Computed example of a mutant assay.
Amino acid sequence: SESEQNSAGFPPIFATLLGTQSDEITTFNQENYNLSLSTQWEIDLWGKIRQGRVAGKQQYLAAKYNYTYYQFSLTSEAAKLYFSIIEAKQLAANAEKKYGNAKIIFDLYTSRYNKGVISLKALQQSELMLNLSKSDLENKKSISKSLIREARVLIKEYPNLELETAKDFPESIPNLPYLLPADIVKRRPDLIASQYNLLASKALNKQALRSLYPSFSLVGSTGASSNVKDLLNDDFSVWSKGVNVFAPIFNAGKLVANKKIAKNNKEIAMLEFVNNLLNAYKEVESGLEFDRSTQLSLNLLKDNIILSESIYSTTFDEFEKGVSSIEDVINANNALFDNKNMLATTERIRIEQRINLILALGGGFTYKQ
């Protein structure tokens, strides 16, 4: 019968010995909680950690002074752009006057040609001068507009052509002393940053050397392992303390290589500092010499403009009377405005060089005569 057999077909006696299949599973719960705290403090016996802290501080100061120098440089470039706009406007104004003179000559020659006084070749020469003057005027205007838009973008405004500037350059700038102290370049932020980089590289070199020495650390740990009820019971807590000593054995080659790299970086930083210092003195010396020579050039150009205006006026009067040729008028007109353009460019260069000199000196300065 079904009651005498199990599901596998074994007799009841074998089912008793082998056991019967059941869906019941016996389970039990065990809860265990751990609480631990570990500490480790390295003893800076050789000063390795301290040198790293010193290097970090020097690197921060170097970055700070580099940022200051970049701000200073950006301000200088903005000032140069401003005076470039003044120069461009003056060149455009000179080109417009030159075009006006060419238009007067062309109209005069057109009238003479219609009367049969001059040849077609002479009229064509005057027209050629007029077209060249017109082309030069448009180029000068385009350059001026481009610089104005660049300045508008620099001040974070829409690049239209509305920008107020002075019409002329400053009539005079402060005179320079004949003697300046040699340590005035120490005020330059980039030199200060270079010096801090050198100090940081020296500290990193010392740190790399001290990393070859054994390190000592104080270690300690405490904790407990039990159920929640007895977790804070002292009977279930454990603790330990001691001193760890680590010596570079397997990674000694890596540390030696790092030491060589740090030494090379220190030498590179030293060479960069010396090179930056010499370049600073060179910039100051060149700026002082150029500043004095530019003033002489300006005085000569102003005298040339007075002479050129007189020559052009005389030549044009003779041209109207038929005494001078059109070539004489063209040459006199070109000489006049070439000198005026050179004056505007020289004034802009003089101010740019003074800005460069201020940048080389690390800012403005005062002196007693």
Rank of each mutant, 00 (worst) to 15 (best):
L35G: 08
E42C: 13
T27M: 13
K263H: 13
F28P: 13
P214N: 15
Q295I: 14
Q207W: 08
S36C: 04
S324N: 14
K140A: 10
N66L: 06
S211N: 02
T222L: 01
Y67T: 15
E77I: 03
K80F: 08
E272V: 11
L288P: 01
I261H: 03
N265Y: 13
N227L: 03
E127T: 00
Y109H: 00
A203D: 01
N160P: 09
K229F: 12
E77Y: 07
L35E: 05
L278W: 03
N114V: 08
L74M: 10
E87H: 03
E164G: 12
N233T: 05
S84D: 10
K260D: 05
K115T: 12
S237Q: 10
S111W: 06
E347M: 11
N356V: 01
K302A: 09
D328A: 05
A15N: 12
K259M: 10
P214S: 15
S142Q: 12
E162V: 05
R50P: 03
G322F: 04
A15R: 07
T222Q: 06
S7V: 12
R350W: 02
Q71C: 06
I330N: 02
S1P: 14
K141N: 05
Q125I: 00
F216L: 08
S240D: 15
D23R: 15
L120A: 04
A200H: 07
E157D: 10
K115C: 02
A262K: 09
P177E: 05
L255C: 08
L343W: 07
K202L: 14
G362N: 11
P11D: 15
S22L: 06
L212I: 10
S240Q: 15
S135W: 00
R187A: 06
T315I: 01
K145G: 04
S194M: 04
F216S: 02
F316A: 01
T75Y: 04
A122M: 02
T346L: 13
N175G: 09
F273M: 06
T346N: 11
S3D: 10
D107Q: 07
K89S: 04
A92V: 11
K186V: 06
Y69F: 09
L307A: 15
S226L: 05
V329E: 03
A203T: 00
E164Y: 08
Q21H: 10
T345D: 13
F83W: 02
N341K: 12
E318S: 01
L204G: 04
Y158G: 15
T345R: 09
D107L: 05
L301S: 06
T20Y: 14
L212P: 02
L81N: 05
G362Q: 09
K89V: 08
N275W: 02
K260A: 07
E87P: 00
A151I: 05
N304I: 06
E150H: 08
G9Y: 15
L231V: 01
I305M: 03
V238S: 14
E289Y: 15
I355T: 00
E77S: 13
I184N: 04
W46V: 04
Q369H: 11
K121N: 09
I330F: 13
A193M: 08
K140M: 13
T16I: 04
L191Y: 11
L296Q: 07
R354S: 09
R348M: 09
K340M: 04
S73M: 14
